[in-house]
Simulated assay, not measured.
Amino acid sequence: MFETARYEMGRRLRGTAILSILISLYTGFIVWYFTVLENVPIEDVFEELPPAMRDAFGVESLATIEGFLGAEVYSFVWVLGLGLYFAYVAGGTIAGDVESKRMDLLLSFPISRSRLIAEKFSALLVPIVGVNVIASGAIYAQVTAIGESIDPMHLVLTHVLSVPYLLVCAAIGTMFSVVASRAALAERGAIGVVFVLFLVESVVGGADEYDWIQYLSPTYYYEPTPLLIDGTYDLIDTGILLAAFVGLLVLSQILFHRRDI
């Protein structure tokens, strides 16, 4: 039972380790760079940034380690980078097996299509959880090493509440994966949609006449910088992300049921 999930999770371990190491190395550089800028009037640079840019990348304050990490790490790596990454990876889960004819073998076993998607998707929890656990520990250690302090609860909340957001991005990729005939099409379509949704919320959503459109983007419901600085969050936003994730996954199962393999 759950053989597919165990097999797929095993395949994700090596990639999770590599991704975690790369992100930890990047965050280490950013934390070190913060010490270099200690004597630079960085708040003056912050004030000169266009409001649209500050909103797009969650820049609130560059003088504190929390604000600096929020702008240089979380807004880029977690919101945009990992969002695109998990959309891309999920985009190849089903479409790749269909393209390689491996799906014919999988469906010959006594397993429903809905369960197959659920088990394959569950394997993505390995990198989603693994990267957050390893990176959060690395960031806390790196910040402590330079003599700065960061609220550990705020840091934990920032990573825990990123999980629903990343699940939505992965679910978008899964939906593309069940309808596309080739893995490359599903992967490109998924990262394209996630990137457009990021732009919609960060750029277009700032205009008063288009204010409503930002609610369509998952990035609207996850803001890491306020979480890091003062622990501000809204559980309703998290609930919306979880509901969107479940809805997209169920829709993917329905579409896959109707697809002729």
Score class of each variant (00 low, 15 high):
Leu80His: 09
Met175Val: 05
Leu116Gly: 07
Val196Leu: 13
Val178His: 06
Ile42Pro: 05
Leu167Ile: 02
Thr144Ser: 13
Thr144Ile: 10
Ala244His: 03
Gly147Trp: 00
Ala145Pro: 07
Ser24His: 11
Ala145Ile: 02
Pro226Val: 05
Leu124Gly: 10
Thr219Ser: 14
Phe245Thr: 13
Ile117Phe: 06
Ala243His: 01
Ala243Thr: 11
Gly247Ala: 09
Val163Asp: 02
Ser136Gly: 11
Val160Tyr: 07
Leu161Asp: 00
Ala87Ile: 01
Ile139Gly: 03
His257Lys: 15
Thr174Val: 14
Asn132Cys: 12
Val163Ala: 07
Gly137Ile: 03
Val193Ile: 09
Ala145His: 11
Val250Lys: 05
Ala138Ile: 10
Ala17Tyr: 06
Met53Tyr: 09
Leu216Ile: 06
Met153Phe: 11
Thr174Leu: 13
Ser162Thr: 09
Pro41Gln: 05
Ala243Ser: 10
Ala123Val: 04
Ser100Arg: 10
Arg12Asp: 05
Tyr7Phe: 14
Leu19Asp: 00
Leu167Arg: 06
Leu82Ser: 03
Gly147Lys: 07
Ser20His: 01
Ile111Trp: 02
Arg113Pro: 03
Ala207Arg: 13
His257Ala: 14
Met153Tyr: 08
Pro110Thr: 07
Ile236His: 11
Val204Pro: 04
Thr4Ala: 15
Ala135Leu: 15
Ser112Gly: 14
Ala171Ser: 12
Gly231Val: 04
Lys120Asp: 01
Tyr233Asn: 08
Phe46Cys: 06
Trp32Leu: 14
Ser202Thr: 14
Ala56Gly: 00
Arg258Phe: 06
Asp234Gly: 09
Asp211Gly: 10
His257Thr: 14
Ser108Cys: 07
